[in-house]
Every structure is written in C-alpha cells, then in structure tokens.
Amino acid sequence: MDLIVPGSGLVIWQIIGFSIFFYILAKFAWKPILAALESRESSIEDSLKAAEVARNEMANLKAENERIIQEAKIERDEMLLKASETVKQMIEEAKNTASIEGAKMIENAKAAIETEKFAALEEVKVQVGVLALEIAEKILKKNFSEVAAQQALVERLVKDIKLN
C-alpha cells in the first residue's frame, strides 16, 4: 500500500514545491501568458470583424458590379439603336441625294436635247436659205425674155418644192 498512498512528507514537499512554482508562474509568466492570450483573442476577433467587413464590401462590390453591368448593357443598347437610326438616316439622305442628282441629270439631258434640236432646226433653216438662194440664182440666170419659158420654169420649181 505504500506504493499507492504517498507519504505525508512527500505530499507537503510537493505542495510547497507546487506553491513556489505557482508563485513564480503567477509572478513572472502568468501575466505575459494572459496578455498573449488576450492579444491573440483580440487579433482573432479583429480578423473576424475584418473578414465580416470584407465580406460585406464584397457583397457591395458585387451589387455595384451588377449595377454597372446593367448600365453598360442599357448604354450599349442605346448606342446600337442610335447607330441603327443614323444608318437609316444616312441611307435616306443618300436616296434623296441620288434622286435629286438623277432629276438634275435628266433636266440637263432634256436641255441638251432641246439645244441640239434648236441647232438642227437652225441648220435646216440655213440649208433651206442656201437652197432658196441657189434657186433664185438659177432663176435669175435664165433669160427672162420668153414668158412661156419663165412660166414653165416656175411650175417645174413649184413641183420640185411640193415633192420634197
């Protein structure tokens, strides 16, 4: 039984040794250990708070990113609509310009045709005048002494004019 129950002297020495050890620990080591534990606990709490703040900020950033994406989509749609309208307007302007230019070209062609027509008529008038002068010259060259010859010549010339 000696092995199971320690002696009273050993228990007293162990209590004294433990008390000295506890006093030294309390005097020199307990405060730094508690301070280290408290600082560790506060740093863990700060880290948890920072993580919570970061999580909230991430949620805010995500919401902000979604809002920005939506705005960008709306702006893109507006830009595409404006571009489409601009293209339609440019096509319409090009059609109008082409029709105006076509009308001008037609008017210029009509004017050129009219000018050519008048020039041709003037040329015909000149040729008729030249022919009339030639006929008058031939008539004047004939001898007008014979009345019957003059009448036959005039009749022949009149017949030539009616045939042409």
Results as ranks from 00 to 15, higher is better:
residue 81 L to C: 01
residue 89 Q to F: 08
residue 52 E to Q: 12
residue 120 A to K: 12
residue 41 E to R: 14
residue 33 I to F: 04
residue 116 E to I: 01
residue 95 K to T: 03
residue 53 V to R: 10
residue 83 A to H: 04
residue 98 A to N: 09
residue 110 K to N: 13
residue 100 I to T: 07
residue 70 Q to H: 09
residue 106 I to F: 03
residue 131 L to H: 07
residue 129 G to F: 04
residue 112 A to W: 00
residue 104 K to D: 02
residue 67 R to N: 13
residue 64 E to H: 07
residue 108 N to T: 03
residue 75 E to Q: 12
residue 27 K to I: 05
residue 127 Q to G: 03
residue 84 S to R: 07
residue 35 A to K: 04
residue 43 S to C: 07
residue 130 V to D: 08
residue 45 E to C: 01
residue 56 N to R: 06
residue 56 N to K: 06
residue 52 E to G: 06
residue 82 K to R: 13
residue 45 E to Q: 07
residue 75 E to W: 02
residue 114 E to T: 13
residue 33 I to D: 00
residue 40 R to W: 15
residue 71 E to P: 07
residue 115 T to S: 13
residue 123 E to Y: 05
residue 117 K to C: 11
residue 64 E to F: 07
residue 84 S to N: 12
residue 120 A to N: 06
residue 39 S to C: 06
residue 121 L to V: 12
residue 32 P to W: 01
residue 27 K to N: 10
residue 53 V to M: 08
residue 96 N to A: 15
residue 22 F to M: 12
residue 38 E to G: 05
residue 114 E to H: 06
residue 104 K to T: 02
residue 27 K to L: 12
residue 111 A to L: 15
residue 72 A to D: 14
residue 31 K to L: 02
residue 105 M to L: 07
residue 97 T to Q: 15
residue 81 L to R: 05
residue 82 K to D: 04
residue 56 N to M: 09
residue 25 L to K: 09
residue 128 V to S: 04
residue 78 E to T: 05
residue 114 E to Q: 12
residue 83 A to L: 10
residue 102 G to H: 08
residue 73 K to F: 07
residue 125 K to D: 05
residue 87 V to M: 14
residue 118 F to N: 15
residue 91 I to K: 09
residue 54 A to F: 04
residue 85 E to Y: 07
residue 121 L to Y: 08
residue 90 M to W: 08
residue 28 F to N: 11
residue 21 F to T: 14
residue 40 R to Y: 14
residue 39 S to G: 10
residue 43 S to N: 13
residue 25 L to M: 13
residue 89 Q to G: 09
residue 83 A to K: 08
residue 77 D to V: 04
residue 29 A to M: 03
residue 104 K to G: 00
residue 130 V to S: 05
residue 105 M to F: 02
residue 56 N to T: 04
residue 71 E to H: 05
residue 96 N to T: 05
residue 50 A to Q: 06
residue 84 S to I: 00
residue 110 K to I: 14
residue 57 E to K: 11
residue 29 A to K: 05
residue 95 K to E: 15
residue 74 I to N: 11
residue 40 R to E: 10
residue 32 P to G: 02
residue 71 E to M: 13
residue 98 A to E: 15
residue 93 E to K: 06
residue 56 N to Q: 04
residue 117 K to I: 09
residue 40 R to S: 12
residue 20 I to V: 15
residue 121 L to Q: 11
residue 66 E to W: 03
residue 118 F to K: 15
residue 100 I to F: 06
residue 55 R to N: 01
residue 66 E to S: 15
residue 49 K to W: 01
residue 53 V to H: 00
residue 76 R to Y: 03
residue 61 L to V: 09
residue 49 K to L: 13
residue 82 K to N: 09
